[in-house]
Design a binder for these strands. Structure first.
Lengths: 261, 261
DNA sequence: TGGTCCAACATGTAGGGACCAGTTGACTGG
DNA sequence: CCAGTCAACTGGTCCCTACATGTTGGACCA
Protein backbone atom coordinates (compact mmCIF):
# COMPACT_ATOMS: atom_id res chain seq x y z
CA UNK A 1 0.00 0.00 0.00
CA UNK A 2 1.85 3.09 -1.25
CA UNK A 3 0.41 6.29 0.11
CA UNK A 4 2.88 8.79 -1.28
CA UNK A 5 1.98 10.19 -4.62
CA UNK A 6 5.04 12.08 -5.71
CA UNK A 7 8.23 12.60 -3.74
CA UNK A 8 9.62 9.18 -3.02
CA UNK A 9 12.93 8.79 -4.82
CA UNK A 10 14.09 7.08 -1.67
CA UNK A 11 12.52 4.18 0.18
CA UNK A 12 10.59 5.09 3.28
CA UNK A 13 12.88 3.36 5.79
CA UNK A 14 15.80 5.30 4.35
CA UNK A 15 13.97 8.60 4.66
CA UNK A 16 13.27 7.74 8.29
CA UNK A 17 16.98 7.12 8.83
CA UNK A 18 18.02 10.29 7.00
CA UNK A 19 15.61 12.53 8.88
CA UNK A 20 16.57 11.11 12.27
CA UNK A 21 20.26 11.32 11.38
CA UNK A 22 19.87 14.98 10.51
CA UNK A 23 18.06 15.64 13.77
CA UNK A 24 20.76 13.85 15.72
CA UNK A 25 23.61 15.77 14.12
CA UNK A 26 21.76 19.08 14.41
CA UNK A 27 21.24 18.64 18.12
CA UNK A 28 17.51 17.92 18.25
CA UNK A 29 18.59 14.66 19.90
CA UNK A 30 21.89 15.41 21.63
CA UNK A 31 24.31 12.70 22.76
CA UNK A 32 22.80 10.71 25.60
CA UNK A 33 19.23 11.61 24.67
CA UNK A 34 16.65 8.97 23.86
CA UNK A 35 14.75 8.87 20.60
CA UNK A 36 10.96 8.57 20.58
CA UNK A 37 9.79 4.97 20.83
CA UNK A 38 9.38 2.85 17.74
CA UNK A 39 5.59 3.08 18.03
CA UNK A 40 5.73 6.88 18.27
CA UNK A 41 7.93 7.01 15.19
CA UNK A 42 5.39 4.81 13.39
CA UNK A 43 2.79 7.53 13.93
CA UNK A 44 5.16 10.34 13.02
CA UNK A 45 6.33 8.80 9.73
CA UNK A 46 3.07 7.00 8.98
CA UNK A 47 4.99 3.76 8.60
CA UNK A 48 4.76 0.27 9.97
CA UNK A 49 6.88 -0.80 12.90
CA UNK A 50 8.98 -3.02 10.62
CA UNK A 51 9.78 -0.05 8.41
CA UNK A 52 10.67 2.20 11.33
CA UNK A 53 12.86 -0.55 12.75
CA UNK A 54 14.66 -0.83 9.40
CA UNK A 55 15.36 2.88 9.50
CA UNK A 56 16.60 2.77 13.08
CA UNK A 57 18.72 -0.22 12.16
CA UNK A 58 20.55 1.90 9.60
CA UNK A 59 21.53 4.35 12.31
CA UNK A 60 22.52 1.54 14.65
CA UNK A 61 24.77 0.22 11.88
CA UNK A 62 26.34 3.65 11.57
CA UNK A 63 27.12 3.66 15.25
CA UNK A 64 24.91 6.68 15.93
CA UNK A 65 22.39 5.11 18.29
CA UNK A 66 22.22 2.08 20.59
CA UNK A 67 19.03 0.17 21.36
CA UNK A 68 18.20 -1.11 24.84
CA UNK A 69 15.28 -3.37 25.45
CA UNK A 70 12.81 -1.66 27.72
CA UNK A 71 14.58 1.68 27.47
CA UNK A 72 14.55 2.78 23.85
CA UNK A 73 17.20 4.05 21.49
CA UNK A 74 19.92 6.25 22.93
CA UNK A 75 22.13 8.65 20.97
CA UNK A 76 25.73 7.55 21.43
CA UNK A 77 28.20 9.95 22.94
CA UNK A 78 31.83 9.72 22.02
CA UNK A 79 34.54 10.21 24.56
CA UNK A 80 37.83 9.69 22.84
CA UNK A 81 41.05 8.50 24.40
CA UNK A 82 44.21 9.44 22.55
CA UNK A 83 46.89 6.81 22.47
CA UNK A 84 50.33 8.18 21.73
CA UNK A 85 51.73 5.27 19.75
CA UNK A 86 55.04 6.85 18.85
CA UNK A 87 55.88 7.38 22.52
CA UNK A 88 54.32 4.15 23.77
CA UNK A 89 56.95 1.80 25.17
CA UNK A 90 59.66 4.14 23.97
CA UNK A 91 62.69 3.92 26.18
CA UNK A 92 63.75 7.46 25.37
CA UNK A 93 60.76 8.64 27.40
CA UNK A 94 61.59 7.13 30.78
CA UNK A 95 58.56 6.17 32.82
CA UNK A 96 57.82 3.80 35.62
CA UNK A 97 55.88 0.67 34.87
CA UNK A 98 53.39 0.28 32.10
CA UNK A 99 52.77 2.96 29.51
CA UNK A 100 49.06 2.21 29.41
CA UNK A 101 48.66 2.79 33.15
CA UNK A 102 50.65 5.99 32.90
CA UNK A 103 48.62 7.42 30.05
CA UNK A 104 45.28 6.52 31.57
CA UNK A 105 46.16 7.85 35.00
CA UNK A 106 47.50 11.05 33.49
CA UNK A 107 44.14 11.52 31.81
CA UNK A 108 42.49 11.36 35.22
CA UNK A 109 40.93 7.97 34.52
CA UNK A 110 41.11 4.77 36.48
CA UNK A 111 42.99 1.94 34.72
CA UNK A 112 42.48 -1.76 35.37
CA UNK A 113 43.84 -4.81 33.61
CA UNK A 114 43.58 -8.60 33.66
CA UNK A 115 46.54 -10.72 32.68
CA UNK A 116 46.69 -14.25 31.36
CA UNK A 117 49.71 -16.19 30.07
CA UNK A 118 49.60 -19.21 27.78
CA UNK A 119 51.91 -21.23 25.60
CA UNK A 120 50.43 -21.31 22.12
CA UNK A 121 51.49 -22.27 18.60
CA UNK A 122 52.05 -19.14 16.54
CA UNK A 123 49.38 -18.16 14.06
CA UNK A 124 50.57 -17.47 10.52
CA UNK A 125 50.42 -13.70 10.89
CA UNK A 126 52.43 -13.70 14.12
CA UNK A 127 54.93 -16.29 12.88
CA UNK A 128 55.66 -14.15 9.84
CA UNK A 129 56.29 -11.13 12.02
CA UNK A 130 58.55 -12.99 14.45
CA UNK A 131 60.47 -14.75 11.69
CA UNK A 132 59.58 -18.22 12.97
CA UNK A 133 57.60 -21.11 11.53
CA UNK A 134 53.83 -21.24 11.71
CA UNK A 135 52.77 -23.44 14.61
CA UNK A 136 56.02 -22.98 16.51
CA UNK A 137 55.37 -22.52 20.21
CA UNK A 138 55.32 -18.97 21.56
CA UNK A 139 54.61 -17.34 24.88
CA UNK A 140 51.30 -15.52 24.64
CA UNK A 141 50.56 -12.81 27.18
CA UNK A 142 46.93 -11.73 27.08
CA UNK A 143 45.72 -8.55 28.61
CA UNK A 144 42.22 -7.13 28.96
CA UNK A 145 42.25 -3.44 29.69
CA UNK A 146 39.58 -1.28 31.24
CA UNK A 147 39.23 2.44 31.80
CA UNK A 148 36.87 3.45 34.58
CA UNK A 149 35.48 -0.08 34.48
CA UNK A 150 34.62 0.10 30.78
CA UNK A 151 36.28 -2.53 28.53
CA UNK A 152 38.76 -0.62 26.43
CA UNK A 153 41.04 -2.98 24.59
CA UNK A 154 42.42 -6.49 24.48
CA UNK A 155 46.05 -7.20 23.86
CA UNK A 156 47.91 -10.38 22.92
CA UNK A 157 51.69 -10.28 22.87
CA UNK A 158 53.67 -13.19 21.43
CA UNK A 159 57.29 -13.84 22.35
CA UNK A 160 59.45 -16.40 20.53
CA UNK A 161 60.74 -19.36 22.53
CA UNK A 162 64.40 -18.38 22.24
CA UNK A 163 63.58 -15.24 24.21
CA UNK A 164 61.90 -17.19 27.01
CA UNK A 165 65.17 -18.88 27.91
CA UNK A 166 66.71 -15.48 28.52
CA UNK A 167 63.62 -13.98 30.16
CA UNK A 168 61.81 -16.68 32.15
CA UNK A 169 59.47 -14.22 33.84
CA UNK A 170 57.67 -13.82 30.51
CA UNK A 171 55.99 -17.18 31.03
CA UNK A 172 54.97 -16.51 34.61
CA UNK A 173 51.49 -15.24 35.29
CA UNK A 174 50.97 -11.74 36.58
CA UNK A 175 52.11 -8.32 35.54
CA UNK A 176 55.77 -7.44 35.19
CA UNK A 177 55.95 -4.37 37.37
CA UNK A 178 58.67 -2.44 35.63
CA UNK A 179 57.18 -3.18 32.21
CA UNK A 180 58.24 -5.92 29.83
CA UNK A 181 60.18 -3.52 27.63
CA UNK A 182 62.29 -2.44 30.56
CA UNK A 183 62.58 -6.01 31.86
CA UNK A 184 63.91 -7.22 28.52
CA UNK A 185 66.27 -4.26 28.20
CA UNK A 186 67.74 -5.17 31.58
CA UNK A 187 68.54 -8.60 30.16
CA UNK A 188 70.35 -7.13 27.19
CA UNK A 189 67.45 -7.40 24.73
CA UNK A 190 66.88 -3.79 23.85
CA UNK A 191 64.12 -2.97 21.40
CA UNK A 192 65.46 -0.30 19.13
CA UNK A 193 62.70 -0.20 16.57
CA UNK A 194 59.05 -0.97 15.96
CA UNK A 195 56.96 -1.76 12.95
CA UNK A 196 53.29 -0.89 13.37
CA UNK A 197 50.38 -2.03 11.25
CA UNK A 198 46.97 -0.46 11.81
CA UNK A 199 43.74 -1.70 10.29
CA UNK A 200 40.03 -1.63 11.03
CA UNK A 201 37.09 -3.96 10.63
CA UNK A 202 33.86 -4.91 12.33
CA UNK A 203 34.38 -6.99 15.47
CA UNK A 204 33.86 -10.71 15.57
CA UNK A 205 31.10 -11.81 17.98
CA UNK A 206 33.82 -12.82 20.43
CA UNK A 207 35.43 -9.39 20.26
CA UNK A 208 32.07 -7.68 20.54
CA UNK A 209 31.43 -9.66 23.72
CA UNK A 210 34.81 -8.94 25.28
CA UNK A 211 34.76 -5.24 24.47
CA UNK A 212 31.02 -4.91 25.11
CA UNK A 213 30.35 -3.15 21.84
CA UNK A 214 27.11 -3.24 19.94
CA UNK A 215 26.44 -3.09 16.26
CA UNK A 216 27.93 -0.27 14.22
CA UNK A 217 31.15 0.10 16.17
CA UNK A 218 34.32 -1.00 14.37
CA UNK A 219 37.52 -2.04 16.12
CA UNK A 220 41.03 -0.77 15.53
CA UNK A 221 43.58 -3.53 15.09
CA UNK A 222 47.06 -2.40 16.05
CA UNK A 223 49.89 -4.82 15.39
CA UNK A 224 53.29 -3.82 16.72
CA UNK A 225 56.41 -5.87 16.00
CA UNK A 226 59.36 -4.91 18.16
CA UNK A 227 62.93 -5.38 16.94
CA UNK A 228 66.20 -5.73 18.74
CA UNK A 229 69.41 -4.92 16.91
CA UNK A 230 69.31 -8.10 14.86
CA UNK A 231 65.84 -9.66 14.91
CA UNK A 232 62.20 -9.35 15.97
CA UNK A 233 61.60 -10.03 19.64
CA UNK A 234 57.86 -9.70 20.04
CA UNK A 235 54.59 -9.11 18.28
CA UNK A 236 51.72 -7.36 20.02
CA UNK A 237 48.23 -7.32 18.58
CA UNK A 238 45.91 -4.88 20.27
CA UNK A 239 42.18 -4.73 19.57
CA UNK A 240 40.72 -1.37 20.50
CA UNK A 241 37.17 -0.10 20.58
CA UNK A 242 37.04 2.14 17.55
CA UNK A 243 34.58 4.56 19.11
CA UNK A 244 36.76 5.24 22.14
CA UNK A 245 40.29 5.32 20.79
CA UNK A 246 42.37 7.47 18.51
CA UNK A 247 45.99 6.67 17.73
CA UNK A 248 48.64 9.37 17.49
CA UNK A 249 52.04 9.35 15.88
CA UNK A 250 54.58 12.10 16.05
CA UNK A 251 57.13 11.96 13.26
CA UNK A 252 60.19 14.12 12.90
CA UNK A 253 60.95 17.27 14.84
CA UNK A 254 57.86 18.62 16.57
CA UNK A 255 59.44 21.14 18.92
CA UNK A 256 57.21 23.77 17.37
CA UNK A 257 54.20 21.87 18.64
CA UNK A 258 55.32 21.75 22.26
CA UNK A 259 52.61 24.16 23.36
CA UNK A 260 49.79 22.47 21.49
CA UNK A 261 49.83 19.17 23.37
CA UNK B 1 4.84 -20.09 16.59
CA UNK B 2 7.86 -21.71 18.20
CA UNK B 3 8.73 -25.06 16.69
CA UNK B 4 11.91 -25.82 18.59
CA UNK B 5 11.42 -27.77 21.73
CA UNK B 6 14.76 -27.81 23.45
CA UNK B 7 18.02 -26.30 22.19
CA UNK B 8 17.33 -22.64 21.61
CA UNK B 9 19.40 -20.59 24.01
CA UNK B 10 19.91 -18.26 21.07
CA UNK B 11 17.33 -16.70 18.78
CA UNK B 12 16.90 -18.41 15.44
CA UNK B 13 18.17 -15.53 13.29
CA UNK B 14 21.37 -15.49 15.35
CA UNK B 15 21.89 -19.22 14.92
CA UNK B 16 21.49 -18.73 11.18
CA UNK B 17 24.19 -16.04 11.29
CA UNK B 18 26.51 -18.11 13.47
CA UNK B 19 26.25 -21.22 11.33
CA UNK B 20 26.81 -19.34 8.10
CA UNK B 21 29.70 -17.39 9.65
CA UNK B 22 31.37 -20.64 10.66
CA UNK B 23 30.91 -22.05 7.18
CA UNK B 24 32.37 -18.92 5.63
CA UNK B 25 35.45 -18.90 7.83
CA UNK B 26 35.96 -22.63 7.43
CA UNK B 27 35.98 -22.37 3.67
CA UNK B 28 32.64 -23.94 2.82
CA UNK B 29 31.88 -20.60 1.20
CA UNK B 30 35.24 -19.18 0.12
CA UNK B 31 35.77 -15.50 -0.73
CA UNK B 32 33.94 -14.63 -3.90
CA UNK B 33 31.47 -17.49 -3.57
CA UNK B 34 27.74 -16.90 -3.40
CA UNK B 35 25.58 -18.13 -0.54
CA UNK B 36 22.41 -20.11 -1.24
CA UNK B 37 19.41 -17.89 -1.91
CA UNK B 38 17.28 -16.60 0.93
CA UNK B 39 14.50 -19.05 0.00
CA UNK B 40 16.90 -21.97 0.03
CA UNK B 41 18.13 -20.93 3.44
CA UNK B 42 14.50 -20.70 4.60
CA UNK B 43 14.11 -24.40 3.80
CA UNK B 44 17.45 -25.33 5.29
CA UNK B 45 16.87 -23.58 8.62
CA UNK B 46 13.10 -24.04 8.68
CA UNK B 47 12.70 -20.31 9.18
CA UNK B 48 10.73 -17.55 7.53
CA UNK B 49 12.34 -15.31 4.96
CA UNK B 50 12.37 -12.37 7.38
CA UNK B 51 14.25 -14.42 9.94
CA UNK B 52 16.80 -15.59 7.39
CA UNK B 53 17.21 -12.00 6.22
CA UNK B 54 17.83 -10.91 9.82
CA UNK B 55 20.56 -13.50 10.08
CA UNK B 56 22.15 -12.52 6.77
CA UNK B 57 21.94 -8.89 7.87
CA UNK B 58 24.13 -9.68 10.85
CA UNK B 59 26.84 -10.96 8.52
CA UNK B 60 26.42 -7.95 6.23
CA UNK B 61 26.94 -5.73 9.27
CA UNK B 62 30.13 -7.61 10.07
CA UNK B 63 31.41 -6.97 6.59
CA UNK B 64 31.55 -10.67 5.72
CA UNK B 65 29.04 -10.73 2.85
CA UNK B 66 27.57 -8.26 0.40
CA UNK B 67 24.05 -8.51 -1.05
CA UNK B 68 23.29 -7.72 -4.67
CA UNK B 69 19.76 -7.52 -5.89
CA UNK B 70 19.15 -10.25 -8.42
CA UNK B 71 22.46 -11.94 -7.71
CA UNK B 72 22.43 -13.09 -4.12
CA UNK B 73 24.88 -12.73 -1.27
CA UNK B 74 28.58 -12.84 -2.07
CA UNK B 75 31.38 -13.59 0.38
CA UNK B 76 33.68 -10.58 0.51
CA UNK B 77 37.31 -10.97 -0.39
CA UNK B 78 39.89 -8.70 1.14
CA UNK B 79 42.76 -7.34 -0.85
CA UNK B 80 44.80 -5.10 1.35
CA UNK B 81 46.94 -2.17 0.33
CA UNK B 82 49.66 -1.19 2.77
CA UNK B 83 50.23 2.49 3.19
CA UNK B 84 53.62 3.34 4.59
CA UNK B 85 52.68 6.39 6.63
CA UNK B 86 56.05 7.01 8.21
CA UNK B 87 57.68 7.31 4.78
CA UNK B 88 54.78 9.09 3.10
CA UNK B 89 55.77 12.59 2.02
CA UNK B 90 59.08 12.22 3.82
CA UNK B 91 61.72 14.35 2.21
CA UNK B 92 64.48 12.05 3.36
CA UNK B 93 63.17 9.51 0.87
CA UNK B 94 63.55 11.41 -2.40
CA UNK B 95 60.97 10.50 -5.00
CA UNK B 96 59.51 12.12 -8.03
CA UNK B 97 56.01 13.48 -7.79
CA UNK B 98 53.33 12.20 -5.54
CA UNK B 99 53.97 9.52 -2.91
CA UNK B 100 50.57 7.93 -3.52
CA UNK B 101 51.25 7.45 -7.22
CA UNK B 102 54.65 6.02 -6.43
CA UNK B 103 53.38 3.51 -3.91
CA UNK B 104 50.48 2.35 -6.06
CA UNK B 105 52.57 2.00 -9.18
CA UNK B 106 55.23 0.10 -7.29
CA UNK B 107 52.55 -2.34 -6.19
CA UNK B 108 51.77 -3.00 -9.84
CA UNK B 109 48.42 -1.22 -9.65
CA UNK B 110 47.03 1.60 -11.73
CA UNK B 111 46.54 4.89 -9.83
CA UNK B 112 44.10 7.62 -10.78
CA UNK B 113 43.07 10.79 -8.98
CA UNK B 114 40.68 13.70 -9.31
CA UNK B 115 41.59 17.11 -7.94
CA UNK B 116 39.42 19.99 -6.81
CA UNK B 117 40.44 23.22 -5.13
CA UNK B 118 38.18 25.47 -3.07
CA UNK B 119 38.42 28.34 -0.63
CA UNK B 120 36.57 27.34 2.50
CA UNK B 121 36.22 28.51 6.09
CA UNK B 122 38.11 26.19 8.41
CA UNK B 123 36.11 23.68 10.41
CA UNK B 124 36.82 23.62 14.15
CA UNK B 125 38.98 20.49 13.98
CA UNK B 126 41.15 21.85 11.18
CA UNK B 127 41.39 25.33 12.70
CA UNK B 128 42.67 23.85 15.94
CA UNK B 129 45.32 21.91 14.09
CA UNK B 130 46.46 24.88 12.01
CA UNK B 131 46.45 27.26 14.95
CA UNK B 132 43.95 29.61 13.34
CA UNK B 133 40.43 30.72 14.23
CA UNK B 134 37.41 28.63 13.34
CA UNK B 135 35.82 29.97 10.19
CA UNK B 136 39.00 31.62 8.94
CA UNK B 137 39.43 31.09 5.20
CA UNK B 138 41.70 28.26 4.09
CA UNK B 139 42.70 26.72 0.79
CA UNK B 140 41.11 23.30 0.52
CA UNK B 141 42.55 20.84 -1.96
CA UNK B 142 40.28 17.82 -2.43
CA UNK B 143 41.48 14.62 -3.95
CA UNK B 144 39.61 11.44 -4.84
CA UNK B 145 41.93 8.52 -5.34
CA UNK B 146 41.35 5.29 -7.21
CA UNK B 147 43.35 2.10 -7.58
CA UNK B 148 42.59 0.07 -10.70
CA UNK B 149 39.40 2.11 -11.06
CA UNK B 150 38.14 1.26 -7.56
CA UNK B 151 37.52 4.21 -5.21
CA UNK B 152 40.22 3.99 -2.59
CA UNK B 153 40.30 7.14 -0.51
CA UNK B 154 39.33 10.77 -0.37
CA UNK B 155 41.66 13.44 0.84
CA UNK B 156 41.12 17.04 1.92
CA UNK B 157 44.15 19.18 2.66
CA UNK B 158 43.77 22.61 4.25
CA UNK B 159 46.40 25.30 3.96
CA UNK B 160 46.28 28.52 5.98
CA UNK B 161 45.94 31.80 4.11
CA UNK B 162 49.34 33.12 5.10
CA UNK B 163 50.88 30.24 3.19
CA UNK B 164 48.93 31.01 0.03
CA UNK B 165 50.70 34.36 -0.35
CA UNK B 166 54.01 32.54 -0.47
CA UNK B 167 52.73 29.63 -2.55
CA UNK B 168 50.09 30.86 -5.00
CA UNK B 169 49.99 27.60 -6.95
CA UNK B 170 48.19 26.02 -4.00
CA UNK B 171 44.99 27.78 -5.00
CA UNK B 172 45.23 26.89 -8.67
CA UNK B 173 43.34 23.86 -9.88
CA UNK B 174 45.20 20.79 -11.02
CA UNK B 175 47.95 18.65 -9.64
CA UNK B 176 51.29 20.06 -8.57
CA UNK B 177 53.62 17.81 -10.51
CA UNK B 178 56.60 17.74 -8.20
CA UNK B 179 54.35 17.23 -5.16
CA UNK B 180 53.14 19.91 -2.79
CA UNK B 181 55.70 18.97 -0.12
CA UNK B 182 58.54 19.54 -2.56
CA UNK B 183 56.90 22.68 -3.98
CA UNK B 184 56.62 24.21 -0.51
CA UNK B 185 60.17 23.17 0.39
CA UNK B 186 61.41 24.97 -2.70
CA UNK B 187 59.78 28.14 -1.36
CA UNK B 188 61.52 27.80 1.98
CA UNK B 189 58.63 26.20 3.85
CA UNK B 190 60.12 22.90 4.82
CA UNK B 191 57.98 20.45 6.75
CA UNK B 192 60.19 18.92 9.38
CA UNK B 193 57.59 17.06 11.40
CA UNK B 194 54.14 15.52 11.28
CA UNK B 195 51.49 14.77 13.82
CA UNK B 196 49.18 11.94 12.81
CA UNK B 197 45.83 11.02 14.29
CA UNK B 198 44.14 7.80 13.24
CA UNK B 199 40.60 6.82 14.08
CA UNK B 200 37.84 4.64 12.69
CA UNK B 201 34.06 4.80 12.42
CA UNK B 202 31.28 3.75 10.13
CA UNK B 203 31.04 5.93 7.02
CA UNK B 204 28.47 8.65 6.61
CA UNK B 205 26.08 8.07 3.69
CA UNK B 206 28.08 10.62 1.71
CA UNK B 207 31.32 8.78 2.35
CA UNK B 208 29.71 5.44 1.58
CA UNK B 209 28.64 6.86 -1.78
CA UNK B 210 32.01 8.35 -2.66
CA UNK B 211 33.98 5.28 -1.66
CA UNK B 212 31.34 2.85 -2.95
CA UNK B 213 31.24 0.85 0.24
CA UNK B 214 28.29 -1.10 1.53
CA UNK B 215 27.16 -1.82 5.04
CA UNK B 216 29.60 -3.34 7.48
CA UNK B 217 32.73 -1.66 6.16
CA UNK B 218 34.27 1.00 8.42
CA UNK B 219 36.52 3.80 7.24
CA UNK B 220 39.93 4.79 8.51
CA UNK B 221 40.27 8.49 9.23
CA UNK B 222 43.84 9.67 8.97
CA UNK B 223 44.56 13.24 9.99
CA UNK B 224 48.07 14.51 9.36
CA UNK B 225 49.22 17.94 10.49
CA UNK B 226 52.50 19.03 8.96
CA UNK B 227 54.82 21.42 10.76
CA UNK B 228 57.54 23.73 9.57
CA UNK B 229 60.22 24.85 12.00
CA UNK B 230 57.91 27.26 13.79
CA UNK B 231 54.25 26.47 13.05
CA UNK B 232 51.75 24.14 11.36
CA UNK B 233 51.53 24.58 7.61
CA UNK B 234 48.86 22.13 6.56
CA UNK B 235 46.30 19.64 7.75
CA UNK B 236 45.36 16.65 5.62
CA UNK B 237 42.36 14.50 6.41
CA UNK B 238 42.26 11.25 4.47
CA UNK B 239 39.28 8.92 4.51
CA UNK B 240 40.23 5.39 3.53
CA UNK B 241 38.17 2.29 2.87
CA UNK B 242 38.83 0.20 5.96
CA UNK B 243 38.59 -3.11 4.13
CA UNK B 244 41.26 -2.19 1.59
CA UNK B 245 43.83 -0.25 3.56
CA UNK B 246 46.33 -0.91 6.30
CA UNK B 247 48.58 1.79 7.67
CA UNK B 248 52.20 1.14 8.52
CA UNK B 249 54.62 3.05 10.70
CA UNK B 250 58.27 2.32 11.15
CA UNK B 251 59.70 3.76 14.34
CA UNK B 252 63.30 3.78 15.37
CA UNK B 253 66.10 1.81 13.82
CA UNK B 254 64.74 -0.98 11.61
CA UNK B 255 67.89 -1.93 9.74
CA UNK B 256 67.43 -5.47 10.99
CA UNK B 257 64.16 -5.61 9.10
CA UNK B 258 65.60 -4.62 5.74
CA UNK B 259 65.05 -8.08 4.28
CA UNK B 260 61.52 -8.46 5.60
CA UNK B 261 59.94 -5.70 3.54
C1' DT C 1 23.01 -16.55 -36.83
C1' DG C 2 21.94 -12.81 -33.91
C1' DG C 3 19.23 -9.81 -31.41
C1' DT C 4 14.91 -9.12 -28.56
C1' DC C 5 11.75 -10.37 -25.19
C1' DC C 6 10.15 -12.54 -21.28
C1' DA C 7 9.76 -15.93 -17.58
C1' DA C 8 12.01 -17.29 -13.61
C1' DC C 9 14.96 -16.52 -10.55
C1' DA C 10 17.38 -13.18 -7.05
C1' DT C 11 16.96 -9.41 -3.30
C1' DG C 12 14.47 -4.88 -1.74
C1' DT C 13 10.65 -2.67 0.40
C1' DA C 14 6.44 -2.39 3.00
C1' DG C 15 2.64 -3.87 5.33
C1' DG C 16 0.12 -6.81 8.80
C1' DG C 17 -0.02 -9.72 13.15
C1' DA C 18 1.48 -12.11 17.52
C1' DC C 19 4.04 -12.84 21.43
C1' DC C 20 8.49 -12.56 24.43
C1' DA C 21 11.48 -9.96 27.54
C1' DG C 22 13.51 -6.03 29.99
C1' DT C 23 12.42 -1.56 32.60
C1' DT C 24 9.88 1.58 35.21
C1' DG C 25 6.80 3.53 38.30
C1' DA C 26 2.56 3.48 40.54
C1' DC C 27 -0.30 0.96 43.42
C1' DT C 28 -1.14 -2.13 47.20
C1' DG C 29 -0.72 -5.00 51.17
C1' DG C 30 1.84 -5.75 55.31
C1' DC D 1 6.84 3.40 55.73
C1' DC D 2 8.66 -0.13 53.23
C1' DA D 3 8.50 -3.98 50.16
C1' DG D 4 6.45 -6.60 46.76
C1' DT D 5 3.39 -6.83 42.80
C1' DC D 6 1.78 -5.63 38.54
C1' DA D 7 0.35 -2.80 34.64
C1' DA D 8 2.14 -0.14 31.05
C1' DC D 9 5.52 1.05 28.69
C1' DT D 10 10.10 -0.19 25.92
C1' DG D 11 12.59 -3.04 22.21
C1' DG D 12 13.31 -8.32 20.47
C1' DT D 13 11.89 -12.08 17.79
C1' DC D 14 9.15 -14.41 14.41
C1' DC D 15 5.59 -15.35 11.29
C1' DC D 16 2.69 -14.17 7.09
C1' DT D 17 1.64 -11.56 2.83
C1' DA D 18 2.35 -8.59 -1.36
C1' DC D 19 4.63 -6.21 -4.75
C1' DA D 20 8.90 -3.68 -6.73
C1' DT D 21 13.31 -4.14 -8.85
C1' DG D 22 17.61 -6.17 -10.59
C1' DT D 23 19.73 -10.30 -13.21
C1' DT D 24 19.97 -14.16 -16.07
C1' DG D 25 19.27 -17.34 -19.61
C1' DG D 26 16.43 -19.57 -22.77
C1' DA D 27 12.71 -19.12 -26.18
C1' DC D 28 11.49 -16.96 -30.17
C1' DC D 29 11.47 -14.18 -34.13
C1' DA D 30 13.84 -11.61 -37.90
Amino acid sequence: MRHDGCMSQQPLYRRVADILRTEISSGVFPPGARLPSERDLCDRFDASRNTVRSGLNVLVGEGLITPSQGLGYEVRSHEVFNLNASRFENLTFPQNGDAYNTDVTQAGRRPHQDFRVEMQPARAEVAEQLGISEGETTVLRFCHRYVDGVPWSTQATSYPMWLLEMAPRLAQPGDIDEGTTRYLAGLGVEQIGYHDDISTRMPTPEEARLLQIGAGIPVLIWRRTGYSADKPVRCTITTLRGDLNHMNYEIGDLVARGDAQ
